[in-house]
Amino acid sequence: MASIKVEQTGSIISTGPQIVLPGDLLPSAETGLLEDAPTAPVIKLGPGLQPMDDDSIAAVKAGVLKHTAVGNRWWVESNQRRYVAAAGESVIGVVVGKTVEHYKVDIGTAQPALLGVLAFEGATKRNKPDIKIGALIYCRVSLANKDMEAELECFNPSTGKADGYGELKSGFLIKVSLGLARRLLDPKTLILRLLGQHIPFETAIGMNGKVWIHSAEPKHTILICNAIKNSEYLNKDECAVMVKALFEKL
């Protein structure tokens, strides 16, 4: 019961989703973690997997076990609602405070994250952006450590350009589950394509489950918000029916 069967054909497991619960062990034979093997391959563990006291590797979250042969990476894809900051992820936050050096931004984590006042495109000590408390910021997590507040930035450090990050003006913010936010970021995502066939709109999606929507009319914005929230537990056909019904009522 505790050991899980994994078939490695190609790069990703082909036998449907492998569901793991906390305490399920990664099979040592498949991951190449056999004891005393001098040429044991390096294994990379992603979210949801932890080495245990007895050197075995166990899942710590309920979700779908994923694996890529390239780099022997293993992780558990799970859904939750509370965000835990991870470096490199794009997030949307609300400015909740301001000090001389930092803005305090609520990105949904336990503690507010810090955004340096100079972490913007072209910002200097003389020329700093003026962001009010309550403003929405689309930014990237530059540093995430479990013992410290996360740090954010609004520019690409290698080019110094904004790359689309910065303050989000007007529009509307909704909160969805982290799993739905990840799905919306997929360029092939169904619900955004369906909505795009009817009305033009702008959107910014944060990995922290916050989705910003901007369209020409408030009634369109409300419709888009409702459609996105409703789509989470629907299949493809039900999504199409739901979007059609919403637009008929408009």
Binding site: L21, P22, G23, G48, Q50, M52, A58, V60, K61, A62, S78, N79, Q80, R81, R82
Partner: peptide, 11 residues
Amino acid sequence: LLDAGIPLKSI
């Protein structure tokens, strides 16, 4: 706890 995604040693 499983629904909230809290890391657990086992269930």
